[in-house]
């Protein structure tokens, strides 16, 4: 973990992360793709906070990074699958140091071992934690079933704001299996705060409902006629 590294190494990793964000995330997301952002003001720029987003593509995290100001972006960390990103040494180094993921062991919960340990630490350190509650990228532009990790985090930190974010179009640009993203404009909707609740099923249903509503809104903006395409500007 970055927090445990000596100061000089930490400085170096932070520089790498910034270089990656400015040199890769910005050009890919803002120039190659192009972003329409709705309700920027709802984004929790300061931690501790949890951002929950739908997951369709490796571009998702790059897109989320571009939403934050450069001075705050190093404070943002996504939780990501350990079995996928820690497959081999080089990828593990890249994922934890350059992307800045917090590795989470999927299905690794036991009495002794809490897979969310890294997430707790990040929130305690005042980070903005990014979660993809679907757990996997799945079919492009379709939501998979939501996992419960968020609920456990909420139980531990009931006062930390949870903000759902829905990204539309990234699965189309680069679905699982594709290597070069096809340029398409991408829509990002930031939703209102999602209050944590004791009832796990109800909480997950509420989150699912939020995503469904945002998904419908994105589809409506893309498809429904709003009147005559007429007046010149």
């Amino acid at each position: 973990m970055a927090a445990a590294s000596p100061p000089l190494a930490r400085l170096w990793h932070n520089a790498l992360r910034l270089a990656f964000i400015v040199g890769v995330a910005w050009p890919v997301v803002l120039v190659w793709l192009g972003l329409t952002l709705r309700h920027r003001e709802r984004l929790p720029v300061k931690g501790p906070a949890i951002v929950v987003a739908n997951h369709n593509s490796h571009l998702d995290i790059l897109t989320l990074y571009t939403l934050f100001p450069l001075s705050k972006v190093l404070n943002v960390q996504p939780a990501a699958a350990a079995d996928y990103f820690l497959r081999h040494k080089l990828l593990a180094w890249f994922a934890t140091r350059v992307i800045g993921i917090i590795p989470v062991v999927r299905g690794g919960a036991s009495k002794r071992n809490d897979p969310l340990e890294g997430c707790y630490a990040a929130l305690e350190a005042g980070r903005v934690l990014v979660l993809f509650p679907e757990g996997t990228r799945g079919e492009p532009e379709q939501m998979s079933e939501l996992k419960s990790g968020l609920w456990y985090l909420g139980r531990r930190f009931p006062d930390i704001p949870i903000v759902p974010v829905f990204m539309h179009g990234l699965g189309r640009a680069m679905a699982k299996g594709a290597h070069i993203p096809v340029p398409f404009f991408v829509d990002v909707h930031i939703d209102r705060l999602l209050p944590w609740q004791d009832d796990k099923t109800a909480f997950k249903a509420e989150l699912q409902a939020r995503f469904t509503a945002l998904q419908r809104k994105a589809a409506v903006l893309a498809e429904e006629p709003k009147g005559a395409p007429d007046a010149p500007r």
């Binding site: 192009g34 329409t36 404009f185 893309a222 498809e223 429904e224 006629p225 709003k226 009147g227 005559a228 395409p229």
Partner: peptide, 11 residues
């Protein structure tokens, strides 16, 4: 109109 949109984008 065929595609059912009013504006072609938000750029």
């Amino acid at each position: 109109r065929d595609l059912g949109v009013k504006d072609s984008g938000d750029l």
